[in-house]
Design a binder for these strands. Structure first.
Ligand code: ZN
Ligand code: ZN
Ligand code: ZN
Ligand code: ZN
Lengths: 129, 129
DNA sequence: TTGACATATGTAATAACGTTACATATCCAT
DNA sequence: ATGGATATGTAACGTTATTACATATGTCAA
C-alpha cells in the first residue's frame, strides 16, 4: 500500500481538523490558518477536496462542515454513519453492515447506481441527553 | 385528523415544488414566484419551514434543496431515505424498517437521543445509469 | 538542461444559500 | 374593540462555495 505525502496546505488543514473537538466549517478552518499564511477560502476547499478523496476527512452534509476521520489510518471506508450531538458538537462515526446491505438491496431492486451515501443522525449524545 | 389550511405563500411554494421534476433550491423557488409577487428569500424560507414541519416537503441536505413529499397525503413519516439521481435530478423516497431499527439499536446502545436522521444516496437512477 | 505537462498555490471577485431585524397586516378569541 | 398569535413585506447582512486567472513547483523525457 503506497501512501502519497500530503502537501503543506493539506497537512495544515488536516491538523486543524484533528485538533478540533468537533466539526469545523471551511471558513473556521480558514480563520485558524490565517497565522500560517492562509488568505482565501479556496486554499481550504482545495485541501479538503484531496483529503476527502483519500478518506482522511469527512463532510457532514447537514452541517456544511468537516471532521477528521475518527480512524487513525487511511483505511477504505465502507458506508459510514455519523451521529452528531447538537449540544456539544461531538461526532461519532460508525458502520453497520446490515444497513449497508439493505440500502444496497434497495439500489439493486431499483436499478439505482449509488455513488455516495450519506447517513447523519442529529440529536444529543449520552452526555448531553 | 385535522388539517390546517395552508397560507397563500405556503400554497405557492408547495405548488412550485409539486410541479417541479426534481429538487429546487430556495432561490430557484423565489425566482419562479417573482411573478406571484415574491421579492425576498425569507418569503420562501418561512413557507418551507412550515411545510417541512408538516412533512409536505423534505429538505435534501446534500443538495441544499427541497422536494415535495412523494406521498400524496399528509401522513406521518417514519425514517425516510432519498435516492437522488445526479444526472436527471429525479428523487426517489423510500423507507426501510430494518435500517430504521438498526440505527435505533445503535442509538440505544450508545445512549444517543436521535432527533432527526438523514439518509441520502447520490448516484444515477435506472434510466440514467 | 531544457521544455512540456501535471499538480499545487495565491488572490480577487462573484455566486449561492441562509438569517437577523424591524415594520405592517391579518386573524381570532375575549 | 382590543390584545395576542400568526403571517407577511422588505432591507441588510452573514455564511458557504465557486469561477477566473495568475504564478509556482515537481516530474519526466528529449
Ligand atoms: Zn472515517
Ligand atoms: Zn453532546
Ligand atoms: Zn415524504
Ligand atoms: Zn436519472
Amino acid at each position: 500500500m503506497i501512501t502519497v505525502d500530503l502537501t503543506k496546505n493539506q497537512t495544515l488543514v488536516l491538523n486543524t481538523l484533528s485538533r478540533a473537538s468537533g466539526p469545523l466549517s471551511a471558513y473556521t478552518i480558514l480563520d485558524q490558518l490565517r497565522a500560517e499564511g492562509f488568505r482565501a477560502p479556496l486554499q481550504v476547499y482545495r485541501a479538503l477536496e484531496k483529503l476527502l478523496e483519500r478518506g482522511l476527512v469527512h463532510r457532514l452534509e447537514s452541517l456544511n462542515a468537516f471532521v477528521a476521520c475518527a480512524h487513525d489510518h487511511d483505511h477504505a471506508h465502507g458506508l459510514t454513519a455519523f451521529a452528531i450531538c447538537e449540544k456539544c458538537g461531538q461526532v461519532s462515526e460508525f458502520s453497520d453492515e446490515i444497513v449497508e446491505g439493505r440500502l444496497k438491496d434497495w439500489a439493486g431492486k431499483s436499478g439505482f447506481r449509488a455513488a455516495k451515501t450519506t447517513i447523519e443522525i442529529r440529536g444529543n449524545c449520552a452526555n448531553c441527553a
